[in-house]
Each structure stands twice: as C-alpha cells, then as structure tokens.
Design a protein around this nucleic acid. Structure first.
Length: 117
DNA sequence: TTCCTGACAGGTG
DNA sequence: CCACCTGCCAGGA
C-alpha cells in the first residue's frame, strides 16, 4: 500500500500529471504539483514518489526545479534515474538536465522536447 | 502538541 | 555557473 492516501483526488492528479510527461522529456516537482492543482506542494510530489511502488510510473522524468537529480550523487537512485533518462535520449551532465525555462503559464511548451528528444 | 526530517523552490553573494 | 541560506508543506516520533 502507498504511504499516502491513494484515494485522495490530489494524489490521483499528481500521478496523472507525472504520467502525462512524455518519454524523452522531463518535469520539475513544482511543475507537477502545479499541474495537479497543488501549487507549492512540490514536497508532496516528492513524498508521493518516495512511497511509490508502481514501476510503471515514470518517476525518472521528475527532476528538481534546477534540473538536477534529487538523489545524492553516486547513490543507486541517482545512477538509476540518470541511466533511464539517457536511455530515453535525455542528456544528463553532472547529474543535471537542461530544463526548459521561461513561460510557466504555457505548460504546453514546457511539456515539449527540451534536448530534442 | 512540539520538534525534526525530507526524491523541494527561490533568492542572494 | 556554483555555493549558501531562508521559506514552505506534510509526515513521523
């Protein structure tokens, strides 16, 4: 069972937002939270992923606001996420990914390919 | 109920 | 661009 109440609609929105991120693209915790209708609840997204047990969830596409991997460098999670991202064609440099910045209102543009993937 | 911790975000130097 | 500090939300002891 999940650490958070899966019955909660908010959780469903978050999961949906995460699944909405296309392959080869990435998104920030805050972006997911905002898209889920929970502005300022970026940490809630993190908690959700931390207790997530669904392997089909594209958790590796979720990065920090600055585009860096949230896991500590060298950790299993860090390497795994970096590996998955590269597998999707995402360029990972020093545990960091070039995040699309600028218009946050137009998430549509944000959802588009950033590194050309 | 109070204190501490965490897959965070934003601003300053 | 990188390092450091402050603010915020939610959960667990």
């Amino acid at each position: 069972m999940a650490a958070l109440s899966a019955d909660s609609p908010a959780v469903a929105r978050i999961l949906s937002a995460i699944r909405d991120v296309p392959r080869g693209s990435v998104a920030g915790y805050g972006h997911i939270a905002r898209r889920a209708g929970l502005p300022g609840r970026a940490r809630m997204v993190a908690r959700l992923l931390a207790g997530n047990d669904d392997p089909t969830l594209p958790w590796h596409r979720i990065l920090r606001s600055d585009g860096s991997i949230a896991f500590p460098p060298g950790s299993k999670g860090h390497r795994e996420q970096a590996r998955r991202l590269r597998e999707e064609g995402v360029k990972v440099v020093k545990g960091r990914v070039r995040m699309p910045r600028g218009e946050d209102d137009l998430d549509a543009a944000l959802w588009g390919p950033g590194q050309g993937g």
